[in-house]
Write a protein that binds this DNA or RNA. Structure first.
Length: 426
DNA sequence: TCTGGGGTCCTAGGACCC
DNA sequence: TCTGGGGTCCTAGGACCC
């Protein structure tokens, strides 16, 4: 059996932990640049504020219902997530952290436990340790655990725990579940299935397997197997190294000046280099992109992108900055108001672990002294920024000037910044 | 008149997830 | 005026190899 533990309205719950006056009130958290709703309290859902909907279209509702609105505070949410996951890891030797607010627990060997009582104990402990309410779904496959979790959240009578144990449990659950709510069936496949009169998860589970394999491919076939109780998706106990890493942002006001764009791209590049080092990885490709708003009139739209090979894989900020500079110069067109830009690094290989070097055919052997030295500089830079806060030491081109994103309703970094807490006190 | 069989790698596009 | 960010996997098609 698998358990899926999911934090309720996670970002909203994080804000409520440190501001209990928000409990019982409608609360929303906005995406970066204060664009869309990415978390809503139950009260906010009831008002009709949609997931992913642009905030400016609902301004009248926000005012009328006195909704508490927050900018995304990912520093806080990331730290709270780590605390929740730490607690949950105490309940099973097998844990897969699936996203910032969800994890799977393997329950193999827990057959002698009363699973429902165990799940309730997990909920109580997570809430006591972190203040975050969670819902728990348990089933014989990951996909069924997901389905159970959905039931636990939707049906208040279950008080946050649902278990699919018997054939009859599963049959009833699938019958009451719309096919688009199945994990792995997105809006495109859902529309395709509805056209063919397949409306519930149960309908889907009973389709001829070869037909599913043909039209929904191997991923759809796995979903069907999993719904029928045959486990295809295993727990990923060790997170595999990332294949690509991206840092991108929308701008509060459009950017037209090349120099301003250089500053933004330098910042994104520095962040990518840092993320690479944190992963003990190196990249061999770097892509820069800059684009106008997709909602602008067609003749004012532009999507520029350029990829540069780095030669030797690297996670050295200085080297990556040079490549990014070249890429930006090649893709930049004057006369456009750019709304968003970003940097993607790919072709990622392991590296950067002290004493563990991947030698290439064309690399001097041993590693040139210069490379060792810049490695040490990067290490020192990361240590300083970890101790004194991100951006304390940075490259001269990494300037946060005109291109800043909109972020007007940011809560304090309660768990990671002493200064923020002192400000709250005074 | 006649021209095989078995592969890999890369990329773009489309689907999905939170 | 104002519409997020960061990922994964799969497939098809083209280029290439012997």
């Amino acid at each position: 059996m698998f358990a899926l533990v999911d934090c309720n309205n996670f970002y909203v719950s994080c804000e409520r932990v440190f501001n209990p006056a928000l409990c019982g009130r409608p609360v929303v958290v906005l995406s970066n640049n204060d664009g869309c709703f990415i978390a809503r309290s139950e009260e906010a859902k009831a008002i009709g504020l949609g997931m992913g909907a642009p905030a400016f279209k609902s301004e009248h509702l926000l005012r009328r219902h006195k909704v508490a609105v927050y900018s995304a505070n990912f520093t806080l949410y990331g730290d709270m997530s780590a605390r929740v996951m730490n607690t949950l890891a105490g309940f099973s030797p097998d844990i897969e952290i699936y996203s910032i607010d969800e994890c799977f627990l393997g329950l193999e060997g827990f057959g002698r436990f009363d699973l429902e009582e165990y799940a309730r104990q997990i909920r109580r402990t997570a809430y006591r340790n972190t203040g975050i309410p969670v819902s728990i779904g348990i089933g014989p496959t990951k996909t069924l655990a997901k389905a159970a979790n959905r039931m636990a959240k939707k049906n208040p009578d279950l008080q946050g725990v649902a278990i699919l144990r018997t054939e009859a449990d599963i049959h009833a659950a699938l019958k009451n579940m719309a096919v688009e709510d199945v994990w792995g069936i997105g809006h495109r496949y859902a529309a395709f299935l509805h056209q063919r009169d397949i409306h519930t998860a149960l309908d889907f589970s009973r389709l001829p397997a070869p037909w599913v394999r043909k039209h929904l491919h191997i991923t759809g076939a796995r979903v069907q197997e999993e719904l029928n109780g045959r486990s295809c998706l295993v727990l990923e106990l060790v997170r595999p190294a990332k294949q690509t890493i991206c840092t991108s942002r929308s701008f509060g006001t459009p950017v037209s000046a090349f120099e301003e764009m250089q500053h933004a791209v330098a910042h994104f590049t520095s962040k990518c280099a840092f993320k690479l080092r944190r992963e003990h990885s190196k990249a061999s490709l770097l892509t820069v992109f800059a684009c106008t708003s997709p909602f602008a009139p067609k003749e004012e739209r532009y999507w520029g992108t350029r990829t540069i090979g780095l030669g030797e894989p690297s996670n050295d900020t200085i080297l990556l900055l040079a490549a990014a500079e070249r890429a930006l110069a090649a893709l930049f067109r004057t006369g456009y108001g750019y709304k968003k830009a970003g940097v993607i690094v790919g072709g990622i290989v392991p590296g950067g672990i002290p004493g563990q070097t991947v030698l290439s055919l064309f690399q001097e052997d041993p590693v040139p002294e210069k490379e060792v030295r810049t490695g040490l500089v990067m290490e020192a830079l990361d240590r300083l920024n970890a101790r004194y806060g991100p951006g304390t030491v940075r490259m001269a081109s990494d300037i946060r000037s005109g291109w800043k994103q909109r972020q007007e309703r940011l809560s304090p970094h309660y768990t990671t910044s002493w200064n923020d807490i002192i400000e709250v006190k005074t």
